[in-house]
Design a protein around this nucleic acid. Structure first.
Lengths: 216, 216
DNA sequence: GCCGGGCATATTGTAAACAAAATAATTTAT
DNA sequence: ATAAATTATTTTGTTTACAATATGCCCGGC
């Protein structure tokens, strides 16, 4: 139960339905999810440890706001571990796995065309999890997932630039092609490149956000 | 409160006071720590997410038992991220930090001589945290810490071989020397080497453990 | 004598009530 | 009218009681 609440909250944050520094009041969440505070509490503790929300003792939880510096640091680590996965991934990749990736990429692409951000999010998530799942090291897979979750809060801002989604879509196609041809160096380079736009886009949005409004 | 329970349990596990697959009953822990089940519960959830205990729904928590494969996977990722920290660490290191490291190393060394495993554990922990703390990327520091915690359960077995502790002590001295001389390549190599013995020792112990006893 | 059903116990999961802390609002004094 | 102090409200933290689930035990049937 606590897990489904946590997932819903993650979704809300990714889709921009909840903004950084927004308060998350336990009773409100109980009403929304029709449960008691115990579960909500657990979910908030979980999200705190994931780095998605911030909890201040005796004051409650709020959606965490990442500074540009924190975002850059997270992406630096992501690059390291995702490139590691790309390096150790056994080649060639089974045809079955390649076609799974193609299916997910197709869904992702269609969702972009339909402006269906919910599906964009989940299809993208599954694509990456399937992709890195191929590396065979489950600790590495989990680490990659955790780091991805840390930046959920910035996805909405990053995706606000339409060219970012376009670029992601194109990257996915290139990645599948590189895997199919068992061209590891190319795949590693694509993995690296794929991580570049998001932090840049967020930082642009962040600076724009604070040019008019004053810091809280 | 939940945090201190969690830390105590971690300590118990590291020092071999609680063994893999041992059950952790909520009420027992309440008695031991003189608190109510809410806190104990939270601590167990926390340790589950850290990968130190395993929780089976409606059946309770047990100390997690890692397979050799899992241990090797974790150490592969540790090597990647710790080497990253060694690569990006700004050189030269301030004299203040070097002497802090030397202090911790001295404490660690003395504790080994006194067979004081509790101090060995904490001095070693602080040494590594101070060392990697120098890299400046807080996400990376946290990732390293998390991965270190995942293998708490095997520490007791790894430390059972006295030569492992000797080797660790010598490595620490070499690392400080390399840092003082700002010899990055050497420091990176030492970081890598320092991670080799533990998984090997654990796997030896693991196989010995299952040569006589049957699998549960 | 062994297998299976049912009862008793142990243990976890859920919910609600209570207590403490922080914030907001109101009153009072200067 | 403003600022400080006091009260009221909101929100989180803790505790206890209750319900559900799983496990072990005992007894009866085959």
């Amino acid at each position: 139960m606590a897990n489904v609440i946590a997932r819903h909250l993650e979704e809300d944050i990714v889709l921009g339905r909840r903004h950084p520094r927004e308060r998350l009041v336990e009773q409100d969440l109980c009403d929304r999810f029709e449960t008691h505070r115990g579960d909500v509490r657990l979910a908030l503790f979980e999200l705190e440890k994931k780095g998605i929300v911030e909890r201040i003792p005796n004051r409650g939880a709020l959606v965490r706001d990442l500074t540009p510096r924190e975002v850059l640091e997270i992406y630096a680590v992501r690059e390291e571990v995702e490139v590691m996965a790309a390096r150790i991934l056994p080649l060639p990749v089974a045809e079955k796995d390649l076609s799974t990736l193609e299916d997910l990429q197709t869904r992702h692409s269609a969702a972009i065309d339909n402006d269906d951000m919910l599906t964009v999010f989940y299809a993208n998530l599954e694509f990456h999890q399937t992709l890195f799942g191929l590396c065979g090291n489950s600790c590495l897979i989990e680490t990659i997932k955790q780091l991805e979750q840390k930046v959920y809060g910035i996805r909405f801002y990053a995706n606000a630039f339409p060219e970012a989604l376009e670029r992601a879509r194109a990257d996915h196609v290139d990645m599948i092609r590189a895997l199919r041809a068992s061209r590891r160096d190319e795949f590693v380079a694509l993995t690296r490149r794929h991580l570049q736009p998001s932090p840049k886009a967020y930082i642009r949005a962040y600076e724009r956000r604070f040019s008019g409004a004053k810091r809280a």
